[in-house]
């Protein structure tokens, strides 16, 4: 569904991508994780035709993103990181213009707008100008707009950034239901719990290179099941254990000064890069 081979991208003196190889399967919900500036957005920009690669190849649904750019673009829906709706226009008008840009007929556009407004739960605001909507509503309009032309692959670049936890969970439910309808989803995020909750497979990107790809369960299992955070000589250290009993044995009679918790994807990222996945 998505195939990336030796992809590089240079911006003047900065090498944003350094030979990325990746394959995303049909119907998969794939999370692309990494700190800010690691190359996540650059990868999405190349895959959706917003930027050209410096070298290497990328295919979406079998179409080369540079050589067959128009066909490749038809397969993709994009929910960008920043809200890029027409604020003067209404929800309906924003969706309608998108449908026109993707060559949908008037009848197709009308039917699809009705369907999507129900899907993202925003029908009652269809005639409101975008500038009168809340941040969460704007995000839902962006998702609806990206799905307007029924793309094979939905790219979501940090879709919940800046949203409060309640709205974020609402967007998660939406993302899950989109995937259950058969779409492939390529999601970038730096919210580790988002990737853990949503993704079937994840890739960690660090300084333009993929440093790990697997299911969240497999990646975490490599470290263990339990993680013990403790302060040693002023620095926090994390030790991993296969079982709670093993961690308890290590602690012995130690009281306080530690946290015992489940291993998470952030531990995986830290172990492969030595960095935290935070902005």
């Amino acid at each position: 569904m998505i195939r990336i081979e030796k992809l590089t991208k240079n911006y003047r003196t900065i090498q944003a991508l350094k030979g990325v190889n990746l394959q995303v399967n049909e119907g998969e919900l794939f999370a692309y994780l990494g700190p800010n500036g690691s190359g996540k957005t650059t990868t999405i920009k190349i895959l959706t035709g917003l930027a050209n690669p410096t070298s290497g190849d990328a295919y979406v649904h079998g179409y080369h993103v540079v050589r067959e750019t128009l066909e490749a673009k038809r397969q993709c829906g994009l929910v960008p990181q920043t809200i890029n709706l027409d604020h003067e226009l209404t929800v309906d008008e924003n969706l309608d213009i998108h449908g026109r840009l993707f060559h949908m007929s008037a009848r197709e556009r009308a039917a699809r707008i009705d369907e999507l407004l129900d899907y993202v739960g925003i029908r009652e605001r269809r005639n409101s100008p975008i500038k009168h909507l809340s941040g969460g509503m704007k995000r839902r309009v962006m998702v609806a707009r990206a799905m307007m032309h029924a793309p094979k692959i939905l790219f979501m670049d940090e879709p919940t950034v800046g949203l409060d936890p309640t709205i974020r969970r609402r967007i998660w439910s939406l993302v899950k239901s989109i995937q259950q309808s058969g779409s492939t989803i390529f999601l970038t995020t730096h919210y580790i719990e988002e990737a853990e909750f949503l993704a079937e497979r994840v890739a960690f990107l660090d300084e333009g290179r993929i440093v790990a790809v697997d299911t969240p369960q497999n990646l975490m299992a490599r470290l263990g099941t339990w993680a013990l955070d403790e302060i040693v000589n002023g620095d926090m250290e994390t030790i991993f254990f296969q079982s709670r009993e093993e961690a308890n044995r290590h602690l012995g009679k130690q009281q306080g000064g530690f946290t015992l918790r489940r291993v998470n994807l952030e531990d995986v990222f830290l172990s492969v890069t030595g960095k935290k996945v935070v902005p």
Binding site: T48, G49, L50, T69, L70, E71, K73, R74, C76, L78, P80, T82, I83, N84, L85, D86, H87, H98, L101, F102, H103, R145
Partner: peptide, 14 residues
């Protein structure tokens, strides 16, 4: 300002 240009660039139009 609105970044809508990205929407046009991601669309299959010449």
């Amino acid at each position: 300002y609105w970044r809508i240009f990205e929407e046009f660039q991601a669309a299959p139009i010449r």
